[in-house]
Design a protein around this nucleic acid. Structure first.
Length: 712
DNA sequence: GCAAGGTC
């Protein structure tokens, strides 16, 4: 008898093979590994998929709309997925002479569908009929054996539910995207790449909403009253923000010339627990904060580290580290590195991680495996070190923070100031990405009288809500249940790619905004979370058997048809508006020769983008752009053309090379200082990168890369 | 060319 066990990914096939047949032999077919075992009168082959092997394709690619879809091997559709063919071939090779099949993919909707498609289209209907299902949630030896010894039937409702998810997404996304592109083509005879989808469109809508809030925001002036005390203290009025100028005047007059008396000095100790283990989202956030890495970059690096065997599976939402991963063994291995060893030696036994709330059935939190890499690129090493330091610090002691809060009175006006210092570092000493506060506590006690040098009122303005950056947007998507942990970074990258959004602090382009306005008019449903919620309800109902998959798909087709009809009726207008917005999105400034718009253009001949005058061919002003350059919103102080940033490390220069305005090399300018107006520069310090004022030491403004004031 | 979801 020959049995074939089909797993979801190479890593799980290894675990499953080792758990069930410790003597199984690892074999290779090209780059693809599989396991063979012979004994007890049977032959077993453990093979693996690599996620989805099949993808949807329209049955008739020339049809106007795509409602009839079929499953085809993914490598036939996407050239970049050529490696999938090898995996599929191995499955087919062994499936042909097998007489028993085990579906051993992850026990969730997508996993069930992956195995089902591999069986149905890779091995044939007969194989599917003979297939049984392993049900497990974690890949531990015991659970795998238990699942193998008690196989169940394939849950066809779960299969239907998974297939329906794919089909619904395709029918909504692809058809509406095509119809938007068609509208532009009809109206202007131009092609621009446009897209809409159940996840990307609500994501863009979140950004558009924020963009409008910021635009409509009217700043209100207010004042903060500060007392400058001898010898070098600043206390702030307890009134906080004062919106009436009269009140400010009264307070200033009342306090003028008076001394300050110390009413109370309180020193409080607070405990700072160690950080929690990394799930993918937290790792992405932290790498963005500490190194400025995009979530997609972090995810790619984490995937590499995992493939190389240095760290665990990255696509997890778990913040738990079960004991079964073997704390001591991992830490023991890591101790071979002296930098890690000095932190590990300080850990107290027994080891107990400070875990977070989030869980993931299938995988623990991201952690090092103990295999220490010998050579890594600079960026890969930063992520690896971050994961290791985080892992170690999770086992560390609590840190203790001392806060000194002093209350003063000047006449009967209350003022306060605070100081903070870390009195016990604990885990902080093994996690060099956190700022360790170290304020000096002035020697004051109740009843002291302090000389007031000056009382000042600082005028400020209320600020609009902050722009999202990639990390905060990922957190927002997670909160709203949009996309999955594996796809969120890609979704955001797609919005940049389509030119719907731009900048580190995310701005929405006119094109992005017009797209949301258009879709809100014709298909509001796709612009908010409602579509995701509807899918969830329907897929759940398919699983419960309350409705058939075909019924759900039929209804979706009717709905999409009606949306397409609406768009069709207003085709020309929609297309014209989208194209106009697209053009507006490309305007970067004014032509110095003819005052027409300077726009970003693409030269297919040179395969590069450049800036040219929209008055071409009458006006032939052009500027070339260095590779990877981005055009900034800040105009050149000398000539008014936009500045560009390029190179590594990023530097700034005027778009016009003849203008010659250039910024210092090696310093990435990320904004303008809110206190003195100089440039803000990314610097690296003991605790990673931060943003500081170029006017240092005269101006001492600093902030984290994440909180850098907006200038783009 | 168009989606979103697995994965190397």
């Amino acid at each position: 008898m020959h049995e074939v066990i089909i797993c979801e990914k190479p890593k799980s096939s290894e675990k499953i093979a080792r758990a069930l047949f410790p003597d199984a032999e690892r074999k290779k077919h090209g780059k693809v590994s599989y396991w063979e075992y012979e004994g007890d009168g049977k032959r077993v082959t453990v093979v693996s998929a690599v996620g989805h092997l099949y993808s949807l394709k329209p049955e008739n690619p020339r049809a106007e709309h795509f409602f009839d879809l079929e499953w085809v091997p993914i490598h036939e559709i996407d050239k970049k997925k050529a490696y999938v063919r090898d995996y599929l071939n191995v499955i087919k090779k062994f499936a042909s002479d097998a007489d028993r099949y085990i579906h051993a993919c992850d026990y969730d909707i997508e996993g069930t569908l992956i195995g089902f498609n591999a069986l149905k289209y890779g091995c044939g209907d007969e194989a599917l009929e003979r297939a049984r299902r392993m049900k497990f949630s974690t890949l531990t030896r015991d659970e795998i054996r238990e699942a193998y010894e008690n196989p169940i039937e394939i849950d066809y409702r779960q299969v239907d539910s998974g297939a329906a998810r794919h089909i619904l997404d395709f029918i909504f996304g692809v058809n509406i995207s095509r119809s938007l592109m068609k509208s532009v083509k009809e109206a202007t005879d131009r092609f621009i790449k446009l897209s809409a989808g159940r996840v990307q469109t609500p994501t863009l809508a979140i950004l558009v909403e924020r963009e409008k809030e910021i635009r409509e925001f009217e700043p209100v002036p207010y004042w903060i009253i500060k007392a400058l005390l001898e010898p070098d203290l600043v206390a702030e009025s307890s009134r906080g923000r004062i919106f009436q100028k009269e009140t400010v005047k009264e307070i200033l007059e009342k306090c003028r010339g008076a001394d300050a008396s110390v009413k109370s000095v309180r020193i409080k100790e607070t405990i700072r627990k160690p950080p929690v283990p990394f799930d993918l989202g937290t790792l992405q956030s932290e790498a963005y904060r500490a190194f400025g890495f995009s979530p997609k970059k972090t995810q790619t690096i984490a995937q590499n580290l995992y493939t190389e065997g240095y760290t665990s599976y990255p696509r997890t939402s778990s913040q738990k580290l079960p004991e079964s991963i073997g704390y001591d063994k991992i830490l023991g291995e890591l101790s071979k590195n002296s930098e890690f060893k000095k932190h590990i030696d300080k850990l107290k036994r027994p080891l107990k991680p400070h875990e977070g709330k989030k869980e993931d059935e299938a995988h623990p939190a991201i952690h090092p495996t103990g295999v220490i890499p010998t050579k890594l690129s600079k960026d890969d090493k930063r992520i690896y070190d971050l994961i290791v330091h985080r892992f170690i610090s999770v086992f560390g002691d609590d840190a203790i923070l001392e806060t000194m809060k002093t209350e003063l009175e000047i006449e009967d006006e209350k003022f306060t100031f605070s100081r903070r210092r870390v009195s016990r570092r604990g885990w902080m000493s093994s996690y060099p990405y956190t700022k360790i506060e170290d304020d000096v506590f002035p020697d004051l006690k109740e009843g002291d009288i302090i000389n007031v040098r000056e009382i000042v009122a600082e005028e400020k303005k209320t600020k609009p809500p902050a722009r999202y950056n990639e990390a905060s947007l990922i957190r927002e998507l997670e909160k709203r249940g949009l996309g999955t942990k594996s796809t969120r970074a890609d979704i955001i990258a797609k919005l940049y790619d389509r030119k719907y959004i731009e900048g580190r602090k995310i701005h929405v382009s006119p094109l992005g905004e017009n797209l949301i306005d258009t879709l809100t008019k014709y298909c509001e449903k796709i612009t908010n979370e409602e579509l995701t919620r509807q899918f969830e309800r329907e897929l759940e109902e398919i699983m419960r058997g309350g409705v058939t998959r075909d019924r759900v798909i039929e209804e979706a087709i009717e709905e999409v048809k009606s949306i397409l009809k609406d768009i069709d009726r207003n085709m020309k207008e929609i297309g014209r508006d989208l194209y106009r917005a697209y053009q507006d999105s490309r305007v970067v400034g004014e032509c110095p020769e003819c005052s027409k718009n300077l726009v970003i253009k693409y030269s297919p001949k040179n395969k590069s983008t450049f800036v040219g005058c929209s008055g071409y061919p009458d006006c032939r002003v052009v500027y070339s752009l260095p590779r990877g350059a981005s055009i900034l919103k800040t105009p050149c102080e000398k000539c008014g053309l936009p500045m560009i940033s390029f190179g590594k490390p990023r530097q700034r220069a005027c778009l016009n090379p003849k203008c010659g305005k250039k910024e210092i090399k090696g310093e990435e300018i990320v904004g303008k200082c809110p206190e003195c107006g100089s440039d803000l520069i990314k610097r690296s310090g003991r605790y990673g990168e931060f943003v500081g004022c170029k006017g240092f030491p005269k101006c001492r403004f600093t902030c984290s890369v994440d909180d850098c004031p907006d200038t783009d």
